[in-house]
Design a protein around this nucleic acid. Sequence first.
DNA 1: GACTGTGGGTCTGATACCGTACGAAGCATG
DNA 2: CATGCTTCGTACGGTATCAGACCCACAGTC
Lengths: 238, 238
Amino acid sequence: MAVSFPSSVRNQLLAILPEADYRQIAPDLEYVELPRGLLLAKADEAIEHVYYLTSGIGSLVASTPEGNKAEAGIFGNEGYVPTSAAMGVELSVYDVIMQIDGDAYRMAFGAFRKWMDENRSFGRVMIRCIEAFSIQLTYTAVSNAVHGVDERLARWLLMCHDRVEGNHIPLTHEFISLMLAVRRPSVTTSLHVLEGNGFIRSVRGHITIRNREALEEFARDAYGKPEQEYRRLMTGLF
Amino acid sequence: MAVSFPSSVRNQLLAILPEADYRQIAPDLEYVELPRGLLLAKADEAIEHVYYLTSGIGSLVASTPEGNKAEAGIFGNEGYVPTSAAMGVELSVYDVIMQIDGDAYRMAFGAFRKWMDENRSFGRVMIRCIEAFSIQLTYTAVSNAVHGVDERLARWLLMCHDRVEGNHIPLTHEFISLMLAVRRPSVTTSLHVLEGNGFIRSVRGHITIRNREALEEFARDAYGKPEQEYRRLMTGLF
DNA sequence: GACTGTGGGTCTGATACCGTACGAAGCATG
DNA sequence: CATGCTTCGTACGGTATCAGACCCACAGTC
């Protein structure tokens, strides 16, 4: 662990920035802790800050006029939110909510816009991230259309696992059911399927990944493309 | 109809550009006809051109490793494809296919990249379009998660209707079933529901919208948000 | 007018998921 | 230890959609 590194580089986007560019924007970063449930942006309200998570997980949740909700995207320390800030959009369209406690470096909307204009490398990284996120959205749409609950749940757990350290994820069935837009009991039974196969262990409020490889195999048709594209998009940028 | 206007302004993105900027990029536009079934981009292949449709409809179709497919996004003369070109991405992740005959002005990938760098207004419009498209992706994901076939079909027909002139849409049940990732007979029965309500008329290969307002009401929970956001994003830009 | 291919309607049984409800188990509080 | 709250397990009937198959209607061709 290099002591001289600021902890903000634990965000992969900030870490990828050339050092000179990073130093330029760094003064506008502010460390914050993000408890579960915190809304980083609210639907139809102004985007005040842009967040670079260094730990934890958040979700982008979209609602319909009748109040149906579903998660459209998930993010951790590999990205930033809300992506729409980069397009000069001031109002958020979705709720962006912390799903697992974490912390982040955040930047005021105005500063973010300024650096998007003035720092080429910064803009390049942010734009790449938008593409990566949009690929995730696409495959969420496809998966929602073609996969059953078991597969969707497996995919979702893998995406969470990618974004935490260790194998332990604090999650309730209730919360998962909101994200996947299915009944809570459907989550329970699907978790049992995964548990019966030895992929995971599930106890009151906690899920432990026990055999990630097998879980990936199980979710093969649902998981992988966005993650692969992320790696492709983010390598060789500089 | 102003005779002096080039037909390319029938694409809403090109139309929105300030005249000076439009004149700058115009020499790199080439008129092409796009028959149904034509692939404007192929998954994992290089993006050769960027297309600005002036008529017709196309779809962005994503596939899973096991060959499941579903439409993730739809576009007409209100946007451009592939949006990823603006992020400096050279390979397409999806198939982009013409769904209803049309025509377009296209620009070589290299020229597009150049103007993204050199013409601020151009870049701004393209970036806005990415955001709009990404909102569409999000709501497709949500709708796929929470709505039944009837509602999803209604939503989809409305999105097609938005992108054609008149009330007539040439479509087969088979094709719609591919887009929605449902069985072909499910499309047949759902169309009967819409037809029974007097919203549409469906005959061999052709669908006619008869009462758009009622159809919108029927699809209220599934349709509208992305379209509303599109208008908000694209007004007052210059 | 017969032939052929595409597109559309309908049937069967199977299954996945739904809405709802209720009870049991874990955990904190006093 | 009693209480209350959250979280989880399970059951019921109902419905939407599935997979697959089959036949019919229409449109073009020769």
